[in-house]
Every structure is written in C-alpha cells, then in structure tokens.
Design a binder for these strands. Structure first.
Lengths: 148, 148
DNA sequence: CGACAATAGTTGCACACGCAGGTATTTGCA
DNA sequence: TGCAAATACCTGCGTGTGCAACTATTGTCG
C-alpha cells in the first residue's frame, strides 16, 4: 500500500463522515421544512440563493450551478415555485434565450417564515450529530469555520 | 438580533458550505461510479458498509440507518444488488422477521474494482473544491480530521 | 449575407426515493 | 394459553431527478 493509497483512503474516510453528517441534517431539514412550510430543501435553497442576490438577477444555468441540480430539475423546480406565486420568470432583455427569476413578495414572506425553522433545525441536527462519536469532530470543525 | 440568532445563522452558513461541498463530490462520484462500474453512490455505500462488517451480518433496518435511507428504499436497493448477484439475503435463524444480507464473491470483486475509482474521484473532487474560496476551509478541516 | 455551430432553456422518459398501508413474526400481559 | 401491541420487512403510489433529445436565439466565419 503506497502513500498515495493511504492518503486517498484517509480522504475517503473524511468523505464518508461528511456524507453521513450531510444525510442526517438533510433528513431532518427535509421533514421540518415540508411539515411547517411545505418546502423541500431544494426549494428552500433556490429561494434562499435568489433572495441573497439582492437586486441582482440570476439566469437558470447560474441557478442550477448554485444549487447543484441539473438544468431540467431547475426548470421544473422554478416552475413549481412560480405556480405557487413565490417566484417569477421574466425574459432577459438583451439575450432572449436567457431567463431571469425574481422572488416575489410572497416568496420573501415565506422565506422569512421558514428561515427560523431552517436555522433551528440545522442547529438541532448538528447538536444531535455532535453526540455521535464518529461525527463529533466534523461538527466541531464546522463550528470553527466561522470564527477561524 | 440575539446571540442565539447569530449562532444559528453561523451554523446555517456552515451547513450551506457543507451541503455545497457534498453536492459537488456526490455529483462527480455518481457519474464516475455509474460510468465505470454501473453503480450508484447508494449502491456503493451499501456494498462498502456490508463489506466492512467483516463476518458480522446486518439486518435491513440497521443497513438503512447506516446508509441513511428509508426502509423501502433499502429493500429495493438490496433487491437490485441481489438481482445482480452482488448480494445475498438470508433469513435470520433466531428471528424469522429479520433478514441478513451478505456480500457475495462477485460483490467483493466489484467493490475491489470500484474502490480505487471511488477514492480517486473523491480526492480529485476535494482538490477541485479546494480551489473554490468558500469551500477551501472545509476541505482543509476535513483533511485534518484524520491526523488530528 | 447565409449557413453552421454554440448556447439557454424545456420536455419525454425511465428510475430511485419517501410515505402510507400491507403481511408475517415475535413479544408482552392478562 | 390467547390476544393485542410491537417489530421487521415489503409493496402501491405519487413525485423529484438526470439523461437525451428538442426548440429558440445568438455568435461565428466564409
């Protein structure tokens, strides 16, 4: 077994930890957002990303990169949110292939209501994961990211 | 804005980073494993988890907890792998409700072939993510987990 | 100017997932 | 012993996702 293999195996171990933590958080987040605001994690992600681009507008492709979804998934996700009146499409004036999306007032309102749920659920899930020996180090490392 | 809100917002920021990194890695991993070994990330995960329980056998419920999937998803995932001859079910002798799963020789073989792909892809994805300013700190933290 | 390639977004299709409800087996308790 | 509750797993159904193919618009080059 070479040094490279050792390094790759160590990183694979890190990946397993990250994946396990991610799955746990996403799991409870999905349920909480669905239950209290009828939003999936992806849908919340789209609203959140768009709302952060204060005044700036993103095209569909940029959006799908930001939320790491395929173009087709993004198309339908935006359609769903548009149908619910949370989002609005409008054509890019200079390039009629491009489509901008804008969060409506209703969208901002729902996002404002959902954000506390989101943040609290993430925090609770992190606390819970902190009790699991294999995950605790990563949780601590994550908490140190901000202050570092 | 209270201290609690600040803390929750900081953790939400950490979560966004973690989710972004996870999505990137899973994305390239999914494509690489699918292309070279006809395995999804979940399928690889199941084989990997089971193979690590050297000689020890897991029940379906334990397995679904380990890979963080619903019971129904686990049932069908195991069925798929069983149909391909990579896995084998057999009834728990002492509790006939329980079902054990065992990786077959073919399964071990495929896993051995896929592991280098898996590890290399994860490592490459991590390197790529290390170039992105927002993700770099988490990548470094992850690499320090093992040596800590 | 005109045709061909490139880009942006949408849609048909197959598939994996979660939820709710189902069967089979075991456990608890009177 | 006998019967209800709990446990372990499976299945019908609806839905979100990615891939490949499609349309519409823009860019490029002879």
């Amino acid at each position: 077994m070479s040094l490279d293999d050792d390094a790759a195996e160590a990183r694979a171990q890190g990946w397993r930890t990250l994946a396990a933590l991610h799955a746990r958080i996403e799991d409870s987040l999905e349920k909480a957002l669905r239950r209290e605001h009828s939003l999936s994690v992806s849908e919340y992600g789209v609203l959140d990303v768009l709302a952060r681009q204060d005044g700036w507008h993103m095209r569909m492709t940029q959006l799908s990169n930001a939320v790491v979804l395929s173009q087709s998934a993004t198309t339908r996700l935006v359609t769903r949110l548009e149908d619910r009146g949370l989002l609005q499409r409008y054509l890019c004036p200079t390039d009629r292939r491009g489509i901008y999306t804008e969060v409506t007032p209703a969208g901002h309102e729902l996002l404002a209501a959902a954000r506390p749920t989101h943040d609290a659920t993430v925090s609770a899930a992190l606390d819970e994961a902190g009790e699991v020996p294999e995950l605790a180090p990563l949780v601590q490392a994550l908490d140190r990211l901000g202050v570092g």
